[in-house]
């Protein structure tokens, strides 16, 4: 019997962490994979919609993410956090989708990772900043370059920490801080143009 939304949320499963569920899947409990999909599907769809420019590919891309996750589940170390791991798979999938569909592919050389950057304080954004950024994000994200778009989504919408984002993007932690700073500045500069579109 296939696990569905209605019966995958058994009380004992709800109490399990992502890492514990992944461990069960690794040991052969394939049905438990539905639990992981249930927990991450909405997040990954949101991440994909904000990151990819072609919304029609998001569903296919997210499906591929889950397929790759299942195929590679035995490479996951349950002592680490599951969330950055699956987001890493999603990041790779979405970047490949952008490369396939874009005339201006993601740059091969990542200049932000060339040198060390000061590590910015990874304080959770204050409520007010969070609300302001969500407004800016809704209005201005499409005009950002992919690497800025992604970091804004991961930090403000997916609410991941600098360390988690560094592990997903495979960049130094300082690079996360500097890229986020630049992304916010870029977004704010764009806002006057975007505001005109809505008049």
């Amino acid at each position: 019997m296939l696990e569905t939304e209605e019966n995958s949320a058994e009380p004992e499963t709800v109490a399990l962490s992502d890492e514990e569920v992944a461990l069960l899947v690794q040991h052969g409990d394939k049905d438990k994979f539905a639990v992981l999909m249930e927990r991450y599907e909405k997040k990954l769809l949101r991440y994909g919609r904000k990151f990819l420019s072609d919304k029609e590919n998001v569903t296919d891309a997210v499906q591929e993410v889950f397929i790759k996750t299942y195929q590679g589940i035995k490479s996951f170390d349950p002592d680490q956090r599951f969330s950055p791991w699956i987001y890493r798979i999603a990041h790779n999938m979405f970047v490949n989708a952008i490369k396939k569909n874009s005339r201006n592919p993601v740059s091969f050389i990542d200049f932000d990772t060339l040198v060390a950057h000061p590590t910015y304080d990874d304080t959770a954004p204050a409520d007010r900043e969070q609300k302001e950024m969500r407004v800016l994000i809704d209005r201005g994200l499409a005009g950002l370059p992919p690497n800025y778009r992604e970091i804004i989504v991961l930090y403000y919408l997916e609410e991941l920490s600098y360390k988690e984002i560094a592990d997903i993007l495979r960049v130094p932690i300082g690079t996360v801080g500097i890229r986020l700073k630049r992304a916010k500045e870029f977004l704010k500069k764009q806002l006057p143009e975007r505001a005109k579109d809505f008049e």
Partner: peptide, 24 residues
């Protein structure tokens, strides 16, 4: 609907053996 489609599609593939876990 999207969620159910994605989940159902992946679970069906798993059940049918079309996708398998790679070994450690």
């Amino acid at each position: 609907k999207n969620k159910n489609d994605i989940m159902q599609s992946v679970l069906e593939k798993i059940k049918a053996g079309d996708i398998r876990m790679r070994s450690k």
